[in-house]
Amino acid sequence: MVAIPSRVVTALAVETRDLVREYKGGVRAVNGVSLAVASGEVYGFLGPNGAGKSTTVRMLCTLLRPTAGWAKVAGHDVARDAAAVRRSIGVALQDAAIDPYMTGRELLRLQGVLHGLSRQGCRDRADVLLDRVGLVDAADRRVGTYSGGMRRRLDLALALVHEPVVLFLDEPTTGLDPLSRVTLWDEVRRLNTELGTTVFLTTQYLEEADQLVDRLGIIDDGRIVAEGTPRELKAQVGDPTLAVTPVRAEDRARAREVLSGFGPEVLGAHGCVAVRLAAGAEGLAAVVRAMDDAGVAVREIDLAEPSLDDVFLAATGRHLEGDEAPAPAGPAPAASR
C-alpha cells in the first residue's frame, strides 16, 4: 500500500522548457512552451479554442508524450517519471468524464482505490470531499441526475482524493451558468489558500483569468505570447482610459483642451471626451483639479483599466471573445472607450 504522497516542497510546481507536441501531419499544437509555476501559485492559461491549452495540460498530466522539450511536475519529469507525476497531481479534464450510472460517492471511493487508499481511507476521504464541495445531499444519487455545476464540483472532488500537490483544471467552468461558475471559483480559491495546492488551469474566459489566477500565460497558436500577473499584463498594454462627460455639452471643447495635456485622445462614447492617461491611474487627481480650474462642471468621470482582451489584442492582433459567443458577462471592455 502506497501512502498518500507527502507534500513535496519544491520551488517550482510546474516547469517546462521548449515543450513541443506535434500531431500526425506535422501540425504543432504546442510549439515551444517554456513556463515556470511556483508552488502555491494559481497559474492560468488563457487562449482561444485550439490554441494548445488542452494539449499542454494533457502532456503535463502524462496523457500525452511531448514530441520535444521537457516538462517537470512536482519535480518529476513527465516522460521519464510518469508514475511519480501521477501520484502528485489531481486532474479534472475538459470533458467531465463521469459515469452517469454511478453515484457521486461510488465514484469518489473508486478514485480512492485507484490511488491506493485503504478501504476505510476511501470512505473517509469520500465523506470529507463530498462535504467540501457541497454534494452531501446528492452523494447517493446517480451522476446522471446532476446539474452541470454539480458535475464539475464532483469532478473537482475526484481530482482531490489523494490531496494532490498540483491540481490541473482544464476549462473548469466552460458551459456553466454564472452562479455555478462563481461557486467553483470560490472552491478553487479556498483550496489554494487553505491547503496551498498549486493550481494550473486553462480558460477561454477573460473574467475567469482576471478573478481567479495569480499569474497568467496567454497562449495562441501553440506559443505563450504574453505572461505575467493580470495587472502587469494590463499595465504593459498601456495606460488606462479616462472618459470625462461635462454637464454642459458646450464645455466639451474646453474639456478636450484640458485633457489634451494628460495624454492622446481616443474615441469615447457619445457625449464624452476620452484620453489615454499617460500618468496612469495616479494622474486622476490632477485631471480633476485641472477641470475644476478651467471651470468645467463634470457629470461623470470614468477611469477604465485595459482589459485582458486588450492584452490579447496587443499580443495577437485579434480579440479573444469575438467568435466565442457564450462568454460570461464580465467587465464589458468596450463600454468606456
Binding site: L63, Q111, H115, G116
Partner: peptide, 16 residues
C-alpha cells in the same frame, strides 16, 4: 466508451 468519454483519461492520469 470510457476512452471516448474521457473516463479513461482519469484512470490514465492516476497512479493506478
Amino acid at each position: 466508451r470510457d476512452l471516448e468519454g474521457g473516463f479513461f483519461s482519469r484512470l490514465q492520469s492516476s497512479p493506478a
